[in-house]
């Protein structure tokens, strides 16, 4: 009697747990749909003709997709140029900052020199200062140097980053000193050790920091907004934000602009997400 009732109770518990699991997954799926809805609507609206996105109920899948809005952006709104500007600035900041910050991190990680610890502590303490504090003097300095409306005005101040140095140093400290000593015995110079031994070993963190820097520069809004007053020098976020003033009623056009601005970084993330997540964790560890 007892033996026969037990499997029944067990299977009832299992059924209940199965149903609860199913409901929980269904709930998460609903949340996922809500989180994704702005993207779906944005992409869909960008392929609609004028007035197509202002209907109720909203269109989530365009029946007759058109590239009109994209065509207008490139033909008359300078989007091609803005795209190029964003790409040039983000790439230049990424490449130059990787070099500058990794070199500094190498010095902190692998050399013993006077004032090393104190200097690093000072650098870390700079991180509590919000960037807005420096904007006015840096603007005036760049103005003096005639670097307003110039790529260099966006690139040079973004090159050195305390956080970049911090992340590189953390990674480099785990590189065994024996490797460096062996290279030195083989006649490798200091810069050779850095370029040929240390940097290749840093590839994972290099990709992570490159990704963070590229996305951060691409997405940055306030500094290019301040520095660029000529439409030909606008980056994508600035062009998009300015477009809304004149074309507020052109919902579909604005959505095409939003797609062009944000899709490149989302695709980049999709391919390199492993490295991005690693960066979050490396940043989180310091807390």
């Amino acid at each position: 009697m007892i033996a026969s009732s037990q499997p029944k109770a067990l299977s009832r518990g299992r059924t209940r747990r199965f149903v609860a699991g199913l409901l929980f997954n269904a709930f998460l799926l609903v949340v996922l749909c809500l989180v994704m809805a702005p993207f779906v609507w944005m992409i869909s609206a960008s392929f609609l003709p004028d007035g197509g996105a202002t209907k109720i109920p909203p269109v989530f899948i365009p029946l007759h997709p058109t590239l009109d809005q994209y065509h207008r952006l490139f033909a008359g709104m300078n989007f091609g140029r803005s795209f190029l500007n964003s790409f040039i600035v983000a790439s230049a900041v990424t490449v130059s900052s990787l070099l500058v910050n990794s070199l500094a991190a190498f010095a902190f990680a692998k050399y013993r020199f006077t004032g090393r610890k104190r200097l690093f502590g000072w650098l870390l303490s700079l991180m509590v200062i919000p960037g807005q504090v420096t904007m006015f003097p840096v603007f005036l300095l760049l103005n003096r140097l005639h670097l307003i409306n110039n790529y260099w005005g966006l690139i040079i101040p973004g090159m050195a980053s305390v956080f970049g140095i911090f992340l590189f140093r953390q990674f480099m400290e785990d590189i065994p000193d024996e490797l460096i000593e062996a290279a030195r015995l083989d006649g490798c110079g200091d810069f050779g050790i850095f370029a040929r031994i240390v940097l290749p070993l840093c590839t994972p963190i290099l990709v992570t920091i490159a990704l963070f820097t590229f996305l951060g520069t691409w997405n940055d809004f306030m500094w290019p907004l301040i520095l660029m007053s000529n439409n030909d020098m606008y980056t994508l976020p600035v062009t998009l934000a300015n477009l809304i003033g004149e074309h507020q009623a052109d919902t579909e056009l604005m959505m095409a602009g939003a797609v062009l601005t944000t899709l490149p970084v989302m695709v980049l993330f999709l391919f390199l997400q492993k490295y991005y997540i690693r960066g979050i964790m490396a940043g989180g560890v310091k807390g």
Binding site: N219, F221, A241, M255, A258, T261, T262, M266
Partner: peptide, 13 residues
Amino acid sequence: VTTLVAVAVVWRY
């Protein structure tokens, strides 16, 4: 990972 300005524009609508 989206651009804040772009999603702010989308959310405006």
